[in-house]
């Protein structure tokens, strides 16, 4: 078990290094950060000196190794635009993204699972069909458009909910939370629904498909023959067997919720890491982009690692000598 985890961690490190290297290769194409850092009257000499000082004239590999070296010491440099430590900027924004992602994941589960069960049980019902149609819209409409539509309806027309921002936040240590104020909770509603919609439809369709699959299984037929009532059949036997893959997928999707929060955050001006990243792209703010990409890679890698370890714990078949490839 220990050797399996060590192996996994080493692989994870390799993945993160690869992400960082690809990121640095891509930074060559984001444009010149210097122009965003100085005013129009700044002389060419000063501009060139700044480039030199920031090491932007060095080859990609040198820049990459410098970044990795600093990152290992916990230093991510200074944002070119905000002129603040990148670790501080990301730290300030971290809680906003995590709260939004968490609420979205909860919404996706709490709404998606019952809808999936309902559509599986009442396959031909009118409501089921409309759920299925709606879910198609959820899957196919881009997040950007859904966000703007929600803002127009609930923010601008009815004025029930704020059109942007996070409302008032309360700081608990370094963590800022919007859960404790009325305006913070109101501000959460629209962006979390926007972010949850895709995952929700995904979970609903997954639960439905799994449920239909399980309902055809022999043990359900046997249960029915034993005279178990529908309620006990559906919820005690069928649903339990359905949830294993659902939990796995949801866990893995948590990473993508955090990563894809970028679009939702920029539509709602939600002050999270994704918004910071989008702004950094516009300004060619390389230190922020590099740190963000590596952090997201870390989150993905961690979640995968946890899922892999859980698999090994749950499934005895994976505890053999070939355990390295388990869970992929």
């Amino acid at each position: 078990m220990i050797s399996f985890i060590v192996k996994r961690i080493l692989q994870s490190l390799l993945v993160m290094l690869a992400v960082a290297l690809i990121a640095f290769a891509l930074f060559q194409f984001v444009g010149d950060p210097i122009n965003n850092m100085v005013g129009q009257d700044t002389s060419l000499l000063d501009r060139e000196k700044l480039r030199q000082d920031l090491g932007l004239n060095d080859p990609i590999f040198i820049q990459f190794f410098r970044f990795v070296g600093n990152a290992l010491r916990g230093e991510f440099g200074f944002s070119y635009v905000h002129r603040l430590p990148v670790s501080q900027l990301i730290g300030e924004r971290f809680s906003a993204t995590i709260e939004l992602s968490f609420v979205s994941a909860v919404i996706a589960l709490v709404v998606g699972v019952p809808m999936g069960i309902y559509t599986a049980i009442n396959r031909r019902g009118l409501l089921s069909r409309s759920f299925m149609t709606l879910s198609l819209i959820g899957v196919s409409l881009p997040t950007f458009l859904i966000g703007i539509l929600l803002i127009l309806v609930f923010g601008v027309s009815f004025r029930w909910l704020p059109a942007f921002g996070r409302g008032e936040v309360v700081n608990i240590g370094w963590w800022s939370t919007g859960f404790l104020t009325a305006s913070g909770l109101k501000a959460l509603i629209l962006p979390s629904i926007t972010l949850a919609l895709f995952q929700m439809t995904l979970i609903m369709r997954l639960v439905r498909a799994e449920m239909l699959e399980v309902m055809r299984a022999d043990f359900i037929k046997f249960g029915r023959a034993r005279g178990l009532n529908n309620r006990s059949l559906y919820f005690r036997h069928a649903l339990k067997n359905t949830l294993i893959p659902v939990i796995t997928i949801t866990g893995l999707q948590l990473g993508s919720i955090i990563a894809f929060a970028i679009i939702t955050e920029s539509v709602f001006q939600w002050p999270g890491m994704g918004l910071l990243f989008i702004q950094a792209i516009g300004d060619a703010d390389i230190p922020i982009m590099a740190a963000y990409l590596v952090l997201i890679a870390l989150i993905f890698v961690l979640i995968n690692l946890i899922v892999d370890i859980l698999y090994v714990r749950i499934d005895p078949r994976l505890r053999t000598s070939t355990s390295g490839s388990g869970g992929q």
């Binding site: 803002i151 923010g155 601008v156 942007f164 539509v267």
Partner: peptide
């Protein structure tokens, strides 16, 4: 779009 919506919504 968000900026304009924020103004129209009175925020």
């Amino acid at each position: 779009a968000t900026r304009v919506a924020a103004l129209i919504s009175g925020q």
